[in-house]
Amino acid sequence: MPSNAKNSLLVVVRHSPYGSSVARSSLEVALAAAAFEQPVGLLFVGDGVLQLIPDQEPSGIGVRNIAKLIQSLPLYDIETLYADEQALQRYGLDPQTLPQQLLPLNTAAIQALFSNYDHILSF
């Protein structure tokens, strides 16, 4: 966690991957900020954790693959993905089956995370 980083940005994503175009937009904002070498954190909250499910195959519904885009995040030096532990449990998702750079956080840890970034962008 970049506790003293200047202009660090936490992008909070709360939407499912294909229910709307919001999921892709939120990731693209994170990538754009990272492309400008800003420290970026990504926090998946609530329905947002559904973006982390692997083996997505959206060609049948004619949109691009969110899971693949998430796999490219390390190339933008977005190394750690934070996830809402409570939402993972509610959906019965096992963190072991999700991307390996995932860090599940409880409510108190998420509250602390909010304070650790200079800016928060909410989707």
């Binding site: 492309a35 490219s72 190339l75 933008y76």
Partner: peptide
């Protein structure tokens, strides 16, 4: 093919 996206320079 890997990432279903076009990279920015950094990536």
């Amino acid at each position: 093919l890997d990432f279903d996206s076009t990279p920015a320079m950094r990536a």
